[in-house]
Amino acid sequence: MSQRKQHAPEFKAKVALEALKGEETAAELASRFGVHPTMIHQWKRALLEGASGVFERGGRKKPEIDEEQVKELHAKIGELAVANSFLERKLKALGREVRRGMIEPDHPDLSIGQQCKLLSIARSSFYYTPKGETEQNLGLMRRIDEQFLETPFFGVRQMTWHLRNDGHLVNEKRIRRLMRLMGLMPIYQKPNTSRPAKGHKTYPYLLRGLRVDRPNQVWCSDITYLPMRRGFLYLVAIMNWHTRKVLAWRISNTLEADFCVEALNEAIHKFGPPEIMNTDQGSQFTSFAWTDRLRRSGVKISMDGKGRFLDNIFIERLWRTLKYECVYLHAWETGSETRAAIRKWMTFYNHQRPHSALGGKPPALVYWQRNDINQPGQQVQRVA
């Protein structure tokens, strides 16, 4: 049997004072403070009944809550309201799954309801376990991914028509949801593509007309979808623009910014920061965690124009090569199998696979030949 939670007198007074204001209903206050509405009624009544003692016997009885205490409590409540408003705005920039993972069920002071309120998520979402996509939807996602590599200009309508012509009974609503889940956007110019998250800053494209003639002058990054037998994962890679070498990569089961920043940290730690980093305008690359890491390292931030996949063409070609030479040849069961296969292929790509743009040499060899700063075995670690 669980022990009944004890509330401090200061907490009860604060809740009762808020109830006295009459600005929120008992249900709203109960949700806000994580207590039962009955308690709010009891504490409010106790405050009203106890307040009469302030005026008994000419005020000779020492009040339990005097005017200065009330003013101080109101000031603290105002400060808390401002702090909570600031915190909510910052937290909303994070994905729901990230905020959900921040909840501590065994927190000594905050209940799950209070933590959900502070993190701006519904309490029911904390207990909800996603069912995942059906086998039919996973098959459709695999077909969409394969076709998108061939025709990256296919939007929702064209992709729906294509799948219908192949005998799949689908509608545009379903294909739109699956393409969004996969992070796919057609390449034609149109408004509101590759939108960053609300409140995130975007940056101009810095590579137009720029001659890229040395390693670590420009890096680029992107995310792609990896189909599996019973689900899907996402892969992010950091590539050296000049030599096409993949500097770092990470796999994740959600489209948050964390795994992108991990790959970026690894690349900077091993090779030092580049002069320019180019990405699309996706929410992972406009997030504070990503852009702040680049700014602290003195890196100029460049972002593709809306709907312009050619602005980051080299890493788009990497995805095409990876999927036809590795991903589509397997049906991985687990994330560990996927990581092992991707690691093996990335090693092959960097050190053995001849690259047509490099005169038939592998990217890693060209990187070290043209890099005047770092050489194998003599890497200079530059810490931001």
Rank of each mutant, 00 (worst) to 15 (best):
A75K: 14
A75M: 04
K76L: 09
I77P: 01
I77G: 00
I77V: 10
G78L: 14
G78I: 01
G78C: 05
E79Q: 15
E79H: 12
E79T: 01
V82K: 14
V82E: 13
A83Y: 03
A83M: 14
N84S: 07
N84A: 08
S85L: 11
F86K: 14
L87C: 09
E88G: 10
R89A: 14
R89V: 11
K90D: 08
L91E: 02
A93L: 13
L94H: 13
E97H: 12
E97Q: 14
R99H: 07
R100H: 12
G101T: 07
G101P: 08
M102Y: 12
I103A: 07
I103Q: 07
L110P: 04
S111A: 03
S111F: 01
I112P: 06
G113W: 00
Q115W: 10
C116F: 04
K117V: 00
L118S: 08
L118W: 07
L119F: 12
R123Y: 00
R123S: 11
S125G: 08
S125F: 06
F126M: 03
Y127G: 02
T129L: 15
T129Y: 12
P130A: 05
P130R: 09
P130E: 09
G132L: 06
G132Q: 08
E133S: 13
T134E: 02
E135A: 14
Q136E: 15
Q136P: 00
N137V: 00
N137L: 01
N137F: 03
N137M: 11
L138K: 07
L138P: 11
G139V: 06
G139F: 06
G139P: 02
M141C: 09
R142F: 13
E146C: 09
L149Q: 12
L149K: 11
E150M: 13
P152E: 06
P152D: 05
P152M: 10
F153D: 15
F153L: 10
G155C: 08
V156S: 05
V156F: 02
R157D: 07
Q158I: 08
Q158W: 09
M159Y: 01
W161K: 07
W161Q: 14
W161P: 00
H162Y: 15
L163Q: 01
R164T: 07
R164G: 02
R164S: 03
G167L: 06
G167V: 03
G167I: 05
H168N: 07
H168K: 02
L169C: 01
V170A: 04
V170Y: 02
V170M: 04
N171L: 00
N171M: 00
E172K: 07
K173Y: 09
I175K: 04
R176Q: 14
R176G: 09
R176L: 13
R177Y: 11
M179K: 11
M179I: 02
R180K: 15
M182I: 09
G183T: 06
L184D: 02
L184T: 11
L184H: 07
M185P: 00
Y188L: 09
Q189N: 04
Q189D: 03
P191R: 12
P191A: 12
T193M: 03
T193Y: 05
R195F: 01
P196C: 02
P196V: 01
